[in-house]
Design a protein around this nucleic acid. Structure first.
Lengths: 336, 336
DNA sequence: GTGAAAGCGCTAACAT
DNA sequence: ATGTTAGCGCTTTCAC
């Protein structure tokens, strides 16, 4: 298949520039102790030959791979479908594009966890990033002592303080959203919560509950969904079926909020007159919905970029805080 | 940072099993010419030592990297946000997880195209996959002769028959969708088309236009969007502003169809009674919308998996057809 | 500041 | 069927 001209090697560059291979290597790696003339000569030779260092050889000799893995548990494969995760991946990819690191996506098969484990510890990568909904996927945590790792989202159980992670402030975001509803005069504020075994689900419910309690309001109006639009619709249906007063709903994400929209309309109720709705995540469809959805915005690309940034620092041996918490902000639109 | 015990090498395995390094290598690579006893002995040694082959060394010696790149033009970075692309990536990742190949994501910076070009041609990968909305991104096409490449989506301009690509049948899908509307008795069928410089936009409009023409219907009811919900809403608004009869809308994707929903409702019209709506892509939100959206379904994960499959075959030197076209199917729901 | 030389861990002829 | 022997292309002491 490959019968192309032989790719230029460092040796060829050395010959052309009339220097040793060591010098070429130094120039390529930006070593400070090379005379300007030689740098010039070598650079010229590199340009003329269109030389590109061989990654494998460099990695073998230096024992560094210049590549980092983004681990995605197979069960979380829909990660790609969820805009939430997609944006994190995007943030990671774009940030890394500005560095010399290469990003490899690793889908961790649950059937064969050792394959992933071996990949991560087998010297294939300099560090790893782990994103997933479920805290159980922090099962890779112990590898963190072997290879630099940064997690997206905080661990649900804080059983390992050595862990590095970046997260958004879900509790505070939920507080802001709920507070907003209260300020708008709502008193019977229901919540469509996410799964309690996911930090985002747990924390957002917690923020809602605390805020309601602090305001002396009832916290019994709660139903759970799984972050999908359909589950949001079902939760709303159950909420309405209770036949108790409800004048607002705080959904743990926009997809569920939008699922609730349809049910509220079917019930002949209007948004926001009868029921105000606030979502979470600032999904693109929320702004196109009618009425446009009030929501909490948090930059997932920033989360991804921050994760990548921390990992690179970790690899370089720079000091890094174990926890990095990103801010959230309220975006008020027509639904509240 | 890394001060762990030295990773076991092939040589250590050889010593432990009492054989030569070549034999260990043969066992590791599944060569047929090794006696069962030695295979047994070597396997045992590998297990005891928990040996993992060094990727860099193997790659350097064999001149194969066992890794393939997924190239994403920076302008298409929102690729990650678009469920359409996310699913393709997912299909690629999951398929590759079952092979020995590693997937690296390459965000091709427009500012520095040479960086990507060098990465692709610099022996870092065995092959590349390219996905993007814009046909102009087929600019990597010429590299296809240097390194095996497979594109997602057909090239807009067929200027290179050597290109390998996998695509869904957009023209036929649009035909089926439009035909469905006609069979439902609709006659004034408008379309909210996607950008004409994207194959998906171009082809879906073409399918609509051909079907309408063949049925002797008017094809003047057309407005363009950019596949976003907001653009769909604006297109619908322009369509309604024409003040001509419209009893159905075929949107080039679900996101635009959903954007149109809100506008139709605002105008006091009902779906599907006044205006039937058919989308495209089978987005998750379409089924949660009210009424649920009729749409064309095409498996993007299958597209991704197929791309990966074709690329691996290409790398292995197996014969592969230049074009692979995947089927689409109509999903009838409440909106039509 | 620059070069010589010794590997990094593995594969692939070539022998036997 | 198994072992021997060269490298793959680069980094990195260690001399000069």
């Amino acid at each position: 298949m490959r019968s192309e001209a032989q790719a230029p090697t460092l040796e060829m560059v050395a010959a052309r520039a009339g220097v040793s291979r060591a010098t070429v290597s130094r120039v390529v790696n930006g070593s400070p102790k090379v005379s300007p003339e030689l740098i010039e000569a070598v650079s010229a030779a590199i340009a003329e030959l269109n030389y590109v260092p061989n990654r494998a050889a460099r990695s073998l000799a230096s024992r560094r791979t210049e590549s980092i893995a983004l681990v995605i548990p197979e069960s979380t494969t829909r990660v790609f479908t969820d805009p939430f995760f997609s944006l994190i991946i995007q943030g990671v990819a774009v940030h890394l594009a500005s560095t010399d690191y290469t990003l490899s996506i690793v889908v961790a098969s649950e059937a064969n966890p050792d394959k992933t484990r071996r990949y991560l510890t087998g010297g294939n990568i300099d560090g790893a990033l782990v994103v997933s909904h479920h805290s159980s996927d922090h099962s890779y945590a112990r590898l963190g002592r072997t290879v630099p790792m940064v997690f997206g989202g905080r661990p649900l159980h804080v059983d390992d303080d050595e862990r590095y992670y970046v997260d958004v402030d879900n509790v505070d975001g939920a507080r802001v959203a709920t507070q907003h509803l209260i300020q708008r005069g709502r008193r019977h504020i229901a919540t469509i919560a996410g799964p309690a075994d996911m930090p985002a689900g747990f924390d957002r419910e917690l923020g809602w509950r605390k805020t309601m309690t602090d305001a002396g309001l009832d916290t019994s109006l709660i139903e759970w969904g799984d972050f999908s639009p359909a589950s949001g619709a079902m939760a709303m249906r159950r909420l309405l079926a209770r036949k108790t007063a409800i004048d607002a709903v705080f959904a743990a994400n926009d997809q569920m909020a939008l699922g609730a929209y349809a049910v509220i309309a079917e019930a002949g109720l209007s948004i926001p007159d009868d029921i105000a709705v606030v979502g979470y995540d600032d999904d693109a469809l929320g702004s196109a919905a009618s009425p446009a959805l009030t929501t909490m915005h948090q930059s997932m690309t920033e989360l991804g970029a921050t994760m990548a940034d921390r990992l690179v620092k970790l690899i370089d041996g720079e000091p890094v805080e174990h926890a990095t918490i990103l801010q959230t902000r309220l975006i008020v639109r027509g639904s509240s």
